[in-house]
Design a protein around this nucleic acid. Structure first.
Lengths: 365, 365
DNA sequence: TTGAAAGCGCTAACAC
DNA sequence: GTGTTAGCGCTTTCAA
């Protein structure tokens, strides 16, 4: 590929052709009020006929110091950002805000591989979207010393933050279930580390978690369902990705437990949906035999049967707020948007004790 | 906002601090093999301690002529790209291909408003995604004279194209329904113009369509279900957006027809899903009373009940192919990916004639 | 209303 | 392995 940025002539060529200085041509493009409309027209026509592509963006950027674009950086493989409806809604909000302000939106994947992309991106500011606190990209970002805002995680001193109160929101989920009489809970968690671990979570792992948001949600659940020693309990299963399949695997393992949980607290709707499908495949009816709550309230939550009880968070607004925190300066350092529990049909009162006992008496597999 | 691109010092400052020439510092960043590891280390350390953010991207771009980024341009409001799963899957593919090649991905909205964004974007190439042939952005793009590829529409002479054979694919949908014995069809079309029109489509409108893809699909349907004068017929309803609500409105109007159609050919899954929901609200069972086929095979197609019969197109691959057409040069000018009909549960044999007759005899409303 | 001059910060040829 | 030199194409004072 040959240098595309200097395909055709320059301002100066146009200037020569018309017989004016290159300043005047520059003005013709950037400050129409600085020259006679007639001259401007001549110049634009000449430019067009020479197929001059307009002022070179790189040169302009170098000179003005502005790229007129911002970047969103995140950890996951690129496609995830589009295929996960929660991420997509957030990005939709960002995109919308950018379009309004005539700003370009650059998508950059974080992780080891792409530190270079972050270093070299032509941008005026950065949104860190839901990254683990140990991601090396964070250092690159800091080095660039651009205006930055973090969304969801990680919390970094002195860097503006936009998110919701995850702990309170997940507490509300658990409370809803508890109110319905549930006592035996299972938590299906988002990843806590970047190691791709899948399985039950011991306290040790919680301590070393890199994904703070996952932790906050777990803590919210535990605030209600109790920790060791209380009269209810919760087993925690960690999924390496927020995918339906993973939710299914989680359910598969959690439902083997004896006594069997009567309620599943899933940290995302996709995990919840996967869990529901699996439960159903095991002849366990939702919500009669098992209650499931999700998190996020993505469009699919209303599509499945039963419709999912979940926490609605204003994803799109989060995107708007991220941009305005980035550009409009001095708001509060940490902004939390409201989230609310949406009760639909995937949760119901705890099945009668008798039924639970039958489970208890089953020879364990 | 102050110029962020020249926040801290320059190569030269670092050079002075270390006592080498600025070329050497440049090499330290870009060609580690050109100097002793030890010196390199000294330089990098110095840079870090002065919090030098690395070579200025604008300056590098100006000098090298490469932006190391490509843009995707489309017509719709930005958020649509993320919320529509078909668009999102395509973008996921693009994003993936970009990540592999360490290229930035810039999202740009087309339409009148944003010609400037296209002009000023720091990019090496462009993907036009599903735009109407009269969009003014197309001219801007042409002016920029960057490598370009069109996805889905519009077909432009000498510009590489990536898509599927829409006409053949929609023909297959219609054929499937015809084979099931259907004779009275309704087509729910994607928009044909940019005027936001919603309603029945007369032949005149087909002639003036700006969205070629919509037209191709309609033609494929008509190839099978017949045009005026044949023994089957199809009414066409145009939706201004590919949204479930619109599909619902379409169904609302189409099902009022007398005789009532027994099959709906929807040009997108979202439209199909909306139609199914509406049909059901009218006590019309799908597929027993009404068959519906969609288009795209988005994830939601498998989520709804009944699962949707639709055309699967390799959206993600389309994204890959777009990037490789853009960068890897000389393939064929027009590349068509395979699409295939996926028969699920939203289509069934045409309801018995007796039942149809009862419809016919109903006093018309 | 127009033009001249001075870089913006960097990379790549080339010489040492 | 390192330094010198010459712009990349533009915008922005400032002066005419």
């Amino acid at each position: 590929m040959k240098p595309s940025l200097r395909a055709r002539g320059t301002l100066k060529d146009v200037a020569n052709a018309v017989g004016v200085s290159h300043t005047t041509v520059s003005n013709a493009f950037n400050r129409p009020d600085q020259l006679s409309p007639k001259l401007r027209e001549t110049i634009v026509a000449a430019a067009r006929s020479m197929s001059y592509p307009g002022p070179n963006p790189a040169a302009r950027m170098l000179r003005t110091g502005f790229a007129r674009a911002i970047a969103v950086v995140w950890t996951d493989p690129m496609p995830h950002a589009f295929e996960d409806q929660a991420a997509a809604s957030f990005l939709a909000g960002v995109a919308e805000a950018c379009a309004e302000r005539r700003l370009g939106l650059l998508l950059v994947q974080g992780g080891e591989s792409s530190s270079r992309s972050v270093q070299a991106a032509a941008i005026d500011g950065l949104i860190i979207y839901s990254m683990p606190k140990n991601d090396s990209t964070l250092q690159m970002v800091a080095d660039r010393a651009l205006p930055t805002v973090v969304v969801d995680q990680p919390i970094i001193p002195n860097i503006p933050f936009v998110g919701i109160n995850d702990r309170a929101a997940s507490r509300a989920c658990a409370q809803h279930l508890k109110t319905l009489g549930h006592k035996r809970f299972a938590i299906v968690s988002l990843r806590l580390g970047t190691d791709g671990y899948r399985g039950f979570v011991e306290p040790e792992r919680l301590k070393n978690a890199c994904f703070e948001l996952s932790l906050r949600r777990i803590e919210g659940y535990l605030d209600v369902v109790g920790r060791n020693g209380s009269n209810s309990f919760a087993k925690i299963w960690e999924c390496p990705h927020s995918l339906e399949e993973e939710g299914g695997i989680a359910a598969e393992n959690l439902l083997k437990l004896n006594p069997q949980p009567t309620a599943i607290l899933a940290a995302s709707d996709r995990l919840a949906i996967g869990a529901i499908e699996t439960a159903r495949r095991h002849q366990l009816r939702v919500p009669e035999g098992l209650s499931v709550v999700g998190f996020d309230d993505i469009p699919a939550a209303k599509l499945i049967t039963p419709e999912l009880t979940t926490t609605n968070q204003p994803l799109r607004e989060k995107g708007h707020l991220a941009i305005s925190s980035l550009l409009d300066g001095n708001g509060p350092l940490r902004r939390k948007l409201p989230a609310k529990l949406v009760i639909r049909h995937s949760t119901a009162v705890c099945p009668a004790e008798s039924e639970s006992h039958s489970n208890l008496r089953k020879p364990s597999g």
